[in-house]
Design a protein around this nucleic acid. Structure first.
Lengths: 185, 185
DNA sequence: CGTTGCTATGCAACGGGGTGCATAGCAAGA
DNA sequence: TCTTGCTATGCACCCCGTTGCATAGCAACG
């Protein structure tokens, strides 16, 4: 389980409330690690009782007060320990692949619209990533040597971009193949 | 949830026992949908009581008897219905990405060996896929028009190959970036 | 003859993730 | 004023996935 570690990283990048974390998990961090707000609140509570994070009540005007979390020393240590501990490569779950193999026993061409939906979602995400890349990493930082946080965030983003490009290319292959079945009948 | 659908597809490709399914989920289907044998037995039992699959006791000599499952008409219908029903693009879970962003708050260069482990795992899988592609799809089938099952299995395998190639390229990017931090100190 | 190892099936229990629902403050517009 | 909508936190429940354990047949090896 790495949700707690993903939260630690996010809080190190910037302290915030459970609600703010939940919104970060809809963007940024959420591109490679998803979580709902209930999960986050639950885990935050556990992390707090374990001493991994500190809490601070922040009164707000014009909106409800919030609890701002930040990483405590034991949390930093826990993250450190996890960072260099071997993790198994993720297990994949691609329902589209299941559907494609299943389509052999039905009408393959009928899958086309579903595949096109997925292709659209991936082109949207790619556009979103590329816009973010231009915005956040467009010009060199010029703040001296190496800014680790910035460099590594860019590195992860490049991974997302590569992933989306690969998916779009494969989905084009899928569409071309399905079209041959459509024509073949 | 699509485990039941993955099982249906696998049983349509070839009827078999829970044990055989579990081994298929360690290869082939398992490349894009994982499951343990306990999950499979549990779901098979539910699918049987729902009438999705038929069971046949197969006595065996030299080894324990087995129950061979095959897809029944309601199972086929359920698969059909699911195939063309919109599915959300999968939510991603890349702990490596979390680790990389987290490394900004620790020693980035210490991640190198972990990344190399992952790179090795991906090159292994790629080699495995490529060997399977040559073995199973090396020469054209020559059995007339379009063999949907074969074509679509190859299509999915090409997706796996593209994924591994992309990952390896990105991991090279990761290693190059981490090396710059190593040299920078 | 005992151990190891593979085939084959299954139970029990735990924990994480997801869905639905509830509450509450406050702003803005109908 | 009432409703809608956003911020903010939380509970209860269920299902799924994972781990550990158990059983049992049979083969092969030492």
């Amino acid at each position: 389980m790495a949700l707690e570690h993903a939260i630690l990283v996010s809080l190190l990048e910037k302290p915030g409330s459970g609600y703010e974390l939940a919104r970060r998990f809809e963007r940024s961090i959420g591109y490679f690690w998803t979580a709902t707000h209930q999960q986050i609140y639950r885990v935050l509570k556990r992390m707090e009782s374990d001493g991994w994070v500190d809490v601070r009540d922040v009164p707000q005007y014009g909106r409800p007060d919030k609890k701002e979390y930040s990483v405590a020393a034991p949390g930093r240590d826990a993250l450190s320990a996890w960072l260099y501990e071997p993790t198994e490569p993720e297990s994949v779950r691609h329902d589209l692949a299941v559907k494609i193999r299943g389509a052999a026993f039905d009408d393959p061409a009928a899958l086309i619209s579903e595949v096109e939906r997925h292709r659209q979602a991936h082109t949207d995400r790619l556009a979103h990533y590329l816009a973010g890349e231009t915005r956040d990493f467009g010009e060199p930082p010029a703040d001296g040597p190496l800014n680790a946080e910035r460099e590594l965030q860019h590195l992860v983003l490049r991974g997302g971009i590569a992933y989306e490009r690969m998916m779009i290319a494969w989905l084009d292959d899928v569409l071309a193949t399905l079209a041959r079945f459509d024509a073949g009948r």
